[in-house]
Design a protein around this nucleic acid. Sequence first.
DNA 1: CAGTGGTCTAGACCACTAT
DNA 2: TAGTGGTCTAGACCACTGC
Lengths: 240, 240
Amino acid sequence: MNTQPTEISLKPLYQQVRERLLLRLIDGDWIAGDVIPSEIQLARELGVSQGTVRKALDEMVRDNILRRKQGRGTFVASSEDAEFVFQFFRLQPDTGDRVMPASVVISVRREKANASVAQLLEITRGTEIVKIERVRSLNDRPVIAETVILVRALFEGFPSAPEVPNNLYNLYAKRWGIRIGRADERLKAGGASPIEAERLGCAPNTPLLRVERVARDLSNRAVELRLSNCLTDGLHYTSG
Amino acid sequence: MNTQPTEISLKPLYQQVRERLLLRLIDGDWIAGDVIPSEIQLARELGVSQGTVRKALDEMVRDNILRRKQGRGTFVASSEDAEFVFQFFRLQPDTGDRVMPASVVISVRREKANASVAQLLEITRGTEIVKIERVRSLNDRPVIAETVILVRALFEGFPSAPEVPNNLYNLYAKRWGIRIGRADERLKAGGASPIEAERLGCAPNTPLLRVERVARDLSNRAVELRLSNCLTDGLHYTSG
DNA sequence: CAGTGGTCTAGACCACTAT
DNA sequence: TAGTGGTCTAGACCACTGC
């Protein structure tokens, strides 16, 4: 049978399927927690074989966009799931427990992107941003002094400090339909500044683990820059 | 056709294929850089379909054990390849280049495992170990003070300091047939000790990125513990 | 029971590599 | 040209879920 679509196609069919499914996710046809149609239905809809759909879904599962549940169906991964949260939150007690962090927001401000922020978020210098400062705690102990920077145009009406929830990625998804799919991180060590020391209740110059994260949505657009400065006595960052 | 092997099998066929291929790698039937038999040959040898062999190979490629080259064949990943090296060496200049580190070995000693080393290497306390101390440089600048700890019984006749090469994983593979397949890392920040400060040419208490790595061979046995203490000005550790 | 994903087979054609 | 992996199809049976 003819395996070629009517037009000349540069990419393999299963990648085209993946992209079409991604578009439907981005458009909000399916939201977090939903079951998507079965492989056989998708195959019929898209005019390809079940095997091709399967290969596309396999990739999306590998990328944590979807989750399979045998006998039940394929689901859109939810930003409320522990698995999703810990995909990005990698600081944990040395004992190995996974503890959900709590957050206290210090400030939410409008600013303009300086050169380095602009470069990392792939925007032009001077673009309006939202800057959130908060302190995150594990087991009631403040351990992360964090700055979150967003492209303001993508997050219209961002709430003021008291209304900012703990799970930001869940907020992005629910409020603006922005799903974080990928995050690239760079780690360094550095001494705590006086402000960080005060927020974390440690001495100035205490060595902190500094994590610089650029988070991207499903269409691979940089939407958030996050600088996390972590105390690491009794805690560690898990790599891999 | 009957898809069941003669015996009752708990695991899927493709996982059994994967395990059989892994055994042949561990036994040294194929060594780094070799082409392994084609999918169709393996399928015939093992009495399964090409699709099943393919699924097993896919997993092994994903785990960086094999590499495919279209039109040429499937190869055993080599510990000399840049891709293999940078799978584990994740400290790089902020400019984004990938630079091969150089190493100067300070000492190679025999010791006995203390409680914490024993726990991480999954051996009993007091087991003989080899402890290698070295300093690694990027662009001629010393940036990592490193301690490597090996289970001595697995590395009989480990060379003395002047004969220790830069690429240890290549040495393990060539000399003892031990291939590193996985490494789990924990990261922390800490101030440089006087010894570290001297080795790295920095002030004592300079914040260092401390990476604790447990490396495992293809049968998932912990074989190496590595503590890397890194200067991170102008450099960063890449996560993911 | 019907429907889902999970595994497995068999066979086709394509793109790339080597000779 | 022959051989390799890469893609795609079609159809089978299994294991698990929920009604």
